[in-house]
Design a binder for these strands. Sequence first.
DNA 1: CCCCTGACGACGC
DNA 2: AGCGTCGCCAGGG
Length: 117
Amino acid sequence: MKETYTSHFKRNNFFEDVYAVVALIPKGRVTSYGAIANYLGSKLSARMVGWAMNAAHTQKHIAAHRVVNSKGLLTGKHHFKTPTAMQQALEREGVKVAKDKVVDFEKKFWNPSQELL
DNA sequence: CCCCTGACGACGC
DNA sequence: AGCGTCGCCAGGG
């Protein structure tokens, strides 16, 4: 059987799951859309995580700034209130950003599949 | 129902 | 190191 979220779970649960994982990201650490997708269900495309985050910013308080793409780039910055809001939020937590990219991404990276056993 | 558009990611050049 | 392409799944026109 397919393992997509739409066939087995309701869309709402998908959002909740994404938010739950994001809420568990330690302060000062970051993760990627793909890592979350992989943790929730390997078959799920990482695009869906970004899609969930897009819906998130209108709803509750979600630490969306701690989620970047697989290369550590702040691709979601344009969806924040200001173009620099995401970077500033990260730097307040001790995550340095240069050229829209997380510095020492490998060190800051938090993998839910590995650390959230 | 077809086509386009993504807060993505892996590859190829 | 930068682009372009393609696969991915859901939503909107």
